[in-house]
Nucleic acid binder design. Structure first.
Length: 492
RNA sequence: GGCGAGUUGGCGGAGUGGUUACGCAGCGGAUUGCAAAUCCGUGUACAGGAGUUCGAUUCUCCUACUCGCCUCCA
């Protein structure tokens, strides 16, 4: 079996990955707080851990991997957004607005992440559906002396957990020394964090032993991962910015609630997406959403490809240059596949997905197995492309399998988008007629050596954004990325 | 202030204690009526300094710079 090696943030080194139970490899990834469109930074972990999910499924079998990614649908940012909507004239109750807002945002998230070719996780729990488990976990923490109630709040006592700070490499004392926040008077220690807090009458709230309130942010991941994956599981992922305090707090809660287990074995953190050298984030306001890019005409595959061109533990800049390059790469891949011995129909796709003959190349699997070296994997894909162009059918087969492992070209629409004309466009516009016209003009020109008419038509086609390919015998026309139907009309 | 990550050719971006990816762009050539596509050829870079070593871009230390976390954040 392929050995997977992953960089474990816990130990700060690459380690061989061995699942607790190879029959059920379990991974938890922190998902979004749902009050707004996902920006490109939110998309990075989705793509990164989607590749890991696919790799694990490839190595351990599709039925032997469980992937959980949560939706945080109770949070002060959501409340604030809902209040703003109310002030802007929305007549509904705060809770109704919140429900509608979170539902809608989840739908958007699904649509946008689907466009990036990310598989849906096996479970996508919403925090509000696990309040009972959170309350139970908090009660357990109080009973064990790791948490205390004060003024309607429940706080985690960081001094009760000696390993607090280990994941992010900091000590409680250092943090207090450098603390920038005002300390709430009811905290025993400045670093103690909230497990439960009181809600006002109109805010979302649930009855609890400490009064009507709502959970703190961190407890949901501890409660949901325990409920869905058990007290100990294999991989916990998320953005590096979550390492502290979120993941540190999760560890404290989970390990204190279930001291017999070790919580997550491997901690994986992706680096940030940057814009002009600065982290893309809501608070800096320098973000753009996945939807923005899709609306600008960048296919999801291009965004995915750009993401995979940089190793997940390095900062990544989004640039148009990279997007263009990714687009060209995908076009060349698709062209190679479409002109190969493979034929692309719905039923064949089903075969290609399952059949041994179309499995990914071992070099690609090996690259991904080495701490998800997706860029090296793409390099190996390029090598396969070279062999495929030379007519190597085995290389062509594993090129397809390799691209599918990376999450590309899993359906006809996707491969058609890059490799050839959109069927609908081809039917709608007179490409065939224009092609034969150009072909006839050329035939005549070859004899009388006057190419002006040919060149004029070709230039007009190019100006309309049509791709013109002339081989010795054929003329082939297809709409390019800048296809402008209006200009084509003028040629009639 | 504390903690952590990084600095590779024109650009992007892997990797390695010695033979130096890969892609894009560029240049030269083949092919083509001209193009496109395709093919062939072409580029000796690893922030600076010191050390370890027969030998360092790769290991150690220092310096500079960049970035992240320490506050909601993917």
């Amino acid at each position: 079996m392929t050995e997977i090696r992953l960089h474990n943030s816990r130990t700060r080194r690459k380690e061989p990955f061995a699942p607790i139970d190879a029959e059920n490899v379990r991974m938890y990834v922190c998902g979004p707080t749902v009050y707004d469109r996902a920006h490109l930074g939110n998309a990075r972990p989705v793509v990164v851990f989607d590749v890991l999910y696919r790799l694990l499924r490839h190595v351990y079998g599709e039925a032997h991997v469980t992937y959980v990614r949560n939706f945080t649908d109770v949070d002060d940012k959501i409340n604030a957004r809902a209040r703003a909507m109310q002030e802007a004239g929305d007549a509904r109750s705060l809770n109704d607005i919140i429900r509608a807002l979170t539902d809608e945002t989840i739908d958007w998230y699904h649509a946008d992440m689907d466009a990036l070719g990310a598989l849906r996780p096996d479970h996508e729990p919403r925090a509000t559906e696990f309040i009972v488990q959170m309350v139970a976990m908090i009660e357990g923490l109080i009973a064990k002396g790791h948490a205390y109630a004060a003024e309607g709040h429940v706080l985690f006592d960081v001094r009760s957990y000696p390993d607090y700070g280990k994941l992010s490499g900091r000590s409680v004392d250092d943090m207090i020394a450098g603390a920038r926040v005002e300390v709430a008077p009811y905290k025993r220690d400045p670093m103690d964090f909230v497990l439960w807090k009181p809600s006002s009458a109109e805010e979302p709230g649930w009855d609890s032993p400490w009064g009507r309130g709502r959970p703190g942010w961190h407890i949901e991941c501890s409660a949901m991962s325990h409920e869905l994956l058990g007290p100990a599981f294999d991989i916990h992922g998320g953005g590096i910015d979550l390492q502290f305090p979120h993941h540190e707090n999760e560890i404290a809660q989970s390990c204190c609630a279930h001291p017999e287990a070790d919580f997550a074995n491997f901690w994986l953190h992706n680096e940030m997406v940057q814009v002009e050298g600065k982290k893309m984030s809501k608070s800096l306001g320098n973000f753009f959403t996945v939807r923005d890019l899709l609306d600008q005409g960048w296919p999801g595959e291009v965004i995915r490809f750009v993401m995979l061109s940089t190793h997940y533990r390095k900062p990544m800049d989004w640039t148009e240059e990279k997007a263009r390059e990714a687009s060209e790469k995908l076009r060349s891949y698709a062209r190679v596949l479409l002109t190969s011995h493979l034929s692309f129909t719905e039923s064949n796709f089903a075969l290609y997905r399952k059949h041994e003959a179309y499995k990914p190349d071992s070099s690609v699997v090996a690259a991904l197995s080495d701490d998800l070296n997706s860029h090296l994997a793409i390099t190996h894909v390029d090598a396969l492309v070279k062999r495929a162009k030379a007519g190597d059918t085995l290389a062509t087969n594993s090129l397809l399998g390799s691209l599918m492992l990376l999450g590309f070209f899993e359906d006809l629409a996707s491969i058609a988008r890059f490799g050839g004309p959109e069927a609908t466009l081809m039917d709608e516009y007179p490409f065939e007629e224009l092609a034969s016209r150009l072909s006839l003009l050329r035939k005549g020109a070859m004899q009388n050596k006057d190419f002006t008419a040919v060149d004029d038509l070709k230039r007009a086609l190019l100006e309309a954004g049509v791709e013109v390919r002339m081989s010795k015998t054929d003329v082939s026309l297809s709409p390019g990325p800048n296809f402008d139907p209006a200009k084509l009309e003028e040629l009639k």
